[in-house]
Design a binder for these strands. Structure first.
Lengths: 216, 216
DNA sequence: GTATGTGAACTATTTCACAGCT
DNA sequence: AGCTGTGAAATAGTTCACATAC
């Protein structure tokens, strides 16, 4: 992406959320200022990395003393669009899907689960907290009615492409895909893959000692 | 990492697993050869990327015709150390932990869950399939006894560092960390972070339209 | 003195492009 | 003719290092 003519790495965005989380903690325990070195220490990143990341968005620090925790927190909240609450749908209420449904952490991140879908007729109609599981056929109308903006895809590999198309068709623009398959969707749809087996496999590869180093 | 004097990107390793998965499918449906362009098509990667990745490990292709599916599959299985089965422990049997415990996909990836731990006394002793949940105190002896090589950390943020240290102390060298916190562990321990909230947050940031493009 | 902000240098990774093999 | 293998070019991302601000 581009900002003020500078290109901002995707990884910078991801780290901003980490800084924000840390700043929120610091704020709670009444720490008022922090240097890039300290913030880096707490997040396992270099001081230069912290400054560079923040530098893409403006000048938040004070030479000689560091960053004002509260101010920087607010700035990041603003930059990251955390003022808004996003409506999320979970598609596929198997083990992983129901774990995510039950996971309470999302609210604190501006994400609200408003719907859940499953192809299994036996599951349809069941309630999970305050969400009633609906059938896949109802995706389109529910996405519109509940203004779903983001969806989490936790269906089996074989169904993933098909369901993804249904979501796109219904107007969803962002998909967090847990199926270990590459989804083919239009350019304007943002897909993020989370492939748990692959993460583990990659780890085990490194464990096998076939690598030359062990750096993170 | 280094191989034949060439440096191999971490991301190449990760993609190798994707190729392997695809090749296994192709093999099942009796497709004998495939070009880098076709394999790239199926995995949403460029032909050049496919060839470059494979090129780090040797010459597997035939000019003019492509790669022999079976051969390449075997080569990758070998390179990635998928001949071995890795023993995995899950620490923290909450929603996510139990979803992973129940997730059957691991076996097909050479990963075998051999133990599960939880701090909650009420959960200790309960069985999940053929795994009995043990208390955190038993980590050290069980890791040794069951030869746990890889662990999945699904405990609350506040406990993560402490439990990670216990795992390291018990001899575990690889941790897949689901807690949204940076673990401080010795250099030789391989940690991979999977931060679900962060993935979603990053997606929502892009959804907010504050980015300049929508490329994946 | 201490810590930021930022070009410049460095490192990593991807894409290009084409010689060479079948 | 078609497709690989691979240096070279291009692009992306990180770290350095220092002038500048408080």
């Amino acid at each position: 992406m581009v900002m003020n003519g500078k290109k901002i790495p995707q990884s910078t965005i991801s780290r901003l959320f980490v800084y924000l989380r840390e700043l929120t903690e610091l704020d709670k325990i009444n720490i008022r200022t922090i240097s890039s070195a300290e913030l880096g220490e707490r997040t396992n990143l270099s001081d230069a990395q912290v400054r560079k990341d923040l530098g893409y968005f403006g000048q938040f620090g004070v030479s000689g003393s560091g960053y004002a925790v509260g101010e920087l927190k607010n700035a990041l909240n603003n930059i990251l669009g955390k003022d808004k609450i996003w409506n999320v749908a979970i598609v596929g209420v198997g083990h992983l899907g129901s774990a995510l449904l039950a996971y309470s952490g999302f609210d604190t991140h501006g994400l609200k689960i408003v719907a859940a879908f499953d192809a299994d007729e036996k599951k349809v109609g069941k309630k999970f907290l305050d969400i009633t599981i609906q059938s896949i056929e109802e995706i389109k109308q529910t996405v519109k009615k509940k203004k779903v903006e983001l969806s989490i895809l936790t269906v089996p590999v074989g169904k993933a492409q098909e369901v993804a198309e249904e979501l796109v068709n219904a107007g969803v623009e962002c998909i967090l895909n847990f199926a270990p398959v590459s989804l083919n969707v239009p350019e304007n749809i943002k897909v993020k893959d989370v492939d748990l087996s692959r993460e583990l496999e990659t780890l085990s590869y490194f464990l096998a000692g076939k690598n030359g180093n062990n750096k993170k």
